[in-house]
């Protein structure tokens, strides 16, 4: 177990930021902390990093209690913060070298690491640039390079793609996957459910400082009643046929209005094929077909009664 957080409580005055929060991260995982803004993701990360005082609970990292002077554990942790944490007076190369130097004393080794980090985030052409000359996306990449140059075993990324263009975002996400393939365990916080869904092997959904659900994407989606939803444009559908459709396997409910048949499933596979077979076999003419899979937002909505991006 790389990270174990048990019953973590953090209060800001009367506000409970973390309410008996629990987290376990195994080696090799990409764990996503998903929750709306203000749900306690960053607070949890800051507590794990021993930056914040907390009221109750225990935090172990690499099997040892995490404290400000846990230098051995810190040696193997990399952090990419939500706010870009680089020096505006240092160039791209100097920033990466500086932060890498806080972990790696050997100058020769450090030079190799810095070169690899620059190559990894694709900043080779910008090494002599000062941060204010970089675009938002490149700046985020520099922020990531400063966090990964020393080759940490555990990398924590706190909303690393905020305000980043799609091209840089894809580059960043692909880079994170690659780091994981190379053996880095990753904790990734975001309020972008699509990112978390694409990237993470396990997802922890947080709301109001509490863990409200946890599991793989499939596991989380299976926790809710709603499954796939299929909509079909049909000029005319008799009520008898609608009743028969409601009897098809895994159909939860179905209704027909304004020439649109909407069928909600509560699980099952190949539901679309089954429905289309039925329509063909009963010679029911149809036009466009839409299929929607349930999202993590549906999971969040089901559990909390509110949208993830509220």
């Amino acid at each position: 177990m790389l990270v174990r957080v048990e019953n973590l409580v953090k209060r800001y005055g009367d506000l409970v930021a973390l309410d008996h929060f629990n987290l376990e991260v195994q080696e090799g995982e990409i764990v996503g902390l998903l929750g709306p803004n203000g749900s306690g993701k960053t607070t949890a990360i800051n507590c794990i990093l021993a930056l914040l005082k907390y009221d109750k609970g225990t935090i172990d990292v690499f099997g040892h209690p995490m404290k400000p002077d846990a230098y051995e554990s810190k040696q193997n942790i990399g952090i990419v913060m939500q706010n870009v944490a680089v020096f505006r007076e240092l160039t791209v190369y100097e920033n990466i070298d500086y932060f890498c130097g806080l972990y790696v004393e050997d100058a020769k080794k450090r030079k190799e690491y810095v070169a690899e980090a620059i190559d990894f985030v694709g900043l080779g052409d910008f090494q002599t640039f000062f941060p204010h000359k970089l675009s938002g996306g490149l700046l985020r990449r520099l922020n990531i390079a400063c966090g990964i140059a020393h080759k940490p075993k555990l990398l924590i990324l706190d909303e690393p793609t905020v305000a980043v263009d799609p091209q840089s975002r894809n580059k960043i996400l692909e880079g994170i996957r690659e780091l994981n393939r190379q053996g880095t365990t990753i904790i990734y916080t975001s309020h972008y459910m699509e990112e978390v869904e694409q990237l993470c092997t396990r997802i922890v959904i947080i709301d109001q400082g509490r863990t409200i659900a946890e599991g793989t994407t499939t596991e989380l989606k299976s926790m809710i009643n709603g499954g796939e939803t299929i909509s079909v444009e049909i000029y005319l559908l008799e009520s008898e046929r609608l009743a028969e459709i409601r009897q098809l396997p895994h159909v939860n409910r179905a209704h027909y209005a304004d020439h649109l048949l909407t069928v909600h499933y509560d699980g099952g596979e190949h539901n679309l094929l089954g429905l289309l077979d039925y329509l063909k076999s009963h010679e029911i003419a149809f036009n466009k077909v839409f299929s929607e899979q349930p999202t993590l937002n549906d999971v969040f909505l089901e559990i909390t009664g509110k949208q993830l991006r509220d």
Partner: peptide, 20 residues
């Protein structure tokens, strides 16, 4: 300003590093 984690992101990053 660059030493304290509650004053700047740079301070936070330096506080997390394994340097005394």
């Amino acid at each position: 300003m660059h030493l304290q984690a509650d004053q700047s992101p740079q301070g936070a990053r330096r506080s997390i590093a394994p340097t005394r």
